[in-house]
Simulated scan of single mutants.
Amino acid sequence: MNPVFNMDAATLSPVALFLQADWVVKAVMFGLLLASIWTWTIIIAFSRRLGRTRKGMAKFERDFWKAEDIDAFHRIEGGNDLPSARVFAAGVKEWRRSTSSGQIDKSGTRERLATAMGAAVANEIDTLSDKLNVLATVGSVAPFVGLFGTVWGIMRSFTGIAQAQNSSLAVVAPGIAEALFATAIGLFAAIPAVIAYNRFSHGVNRIEAGLNRFADGFHTTLSRQLDGSR
């Protein structure tokens, strides 16, 4: 059986579809490709950062709970570039400020310690999740940008049909293929962004829970010192 039409396979290659597309569709494709590259750059960098942060925090907290002298541990590890280390430093700083005077307000000291370390936890989570909004934006916007390119390309194909006065598939197919390719690129950018966003959000939430547990434990330790017991 003879095919209805015969198209060169090269005309359906991604490069050919891009080169043959209208300038508006080209702009959409190019923007989505940049978004995809940006997305994968963030995914790779954030994945490594999250892994290093989790390992570093686990080691820091193990060393902290083994330490017998908080002041000595602070001198050694207080400047460490880890979220848990900065929460620890915030607690030590507030502890020293609150206990530097002769008269210590135990209740007020406990409240200030909780506030200081809570603010440090929030700041660390905000810093850690800074790039996640990019993934969320790409994941939600990219399909619609690709759809815009598809609609524009199909409109262009219909205009070509009217001008050529020929509605055969051989005339329509190239333009529709170019248009649908824009949607494909949009999904190519959006799907990894959505998956990575959900995965990284879960990882950040776990780190936040770990920081809160560490802050609560450190707060309990300092509270015992206020009461004059271990």
Rank of each mutant, 00 (worst) to 15 (best):
P3Q: 12
N6T: 14
L12Q: 02
S13I: 04
Q20D: 08
A21P: 00
D22G: 15
V25P: 07
M29C: 12
G31D: 12
G31E: 07
L34S: 10
L34W: 12
I37T: 09
I42Q: 06
I44C: 14
S47L: 05
S47H: 07
L50G: 08
R52S: 13
R52N: 15
R52P: 05
T53N: 07
R54F: 04
R54N: 09
G56M: 04
K66I: 05
D69F: 05
I70C: 02
A72F: 02
A72Y: 01
F73S: 03
H74K: 06
H74S: 14
G79R: 11
N80S: 13
S84G: 09
R86W: 08
F88Q: 10
A89K: 11
A90F: 03
S100K: 11
S100I: 04
S100T: 04
S101E: 14
S101H: 10
E111R: 14
L113P: 03
A114S: 12
A116C: 12
M117C: 03
A122R: 09
D126K: 14
L132H: 08
N133I: 08
V141H: 05
V141W: 05
F144H: 08
G146H: 04
T150L: 02
G153Q: 01
I154P: 02
I154M: 06
R156T: 15
S157H: 04
S157I: 02
T159D: 15
G160W: 06
A162C: 07
Q163P: 07
N166Q: 09
N166V: 07
S168K: 12
V171K: 11
V172A: 15
G175Q: 03
F181N: 00
A182C: 11
T183Y: 00
T183I: 00
G186Q: 09
A189V: 05
A189K: 03
Y197Q: 12
R199E: 02
R199Y: 13
S201I: 06
H202N: 14
G203A: 08
G203Y: 08
V204Q: 10
N205Y: 11
R206T: 10
I207G: 06
I207C: 06
N212F: 03
D216G: 10
F218D: 01
F218N: 00
Q225F: 00
D227E: 15
D227A: 14
D227Q: 14
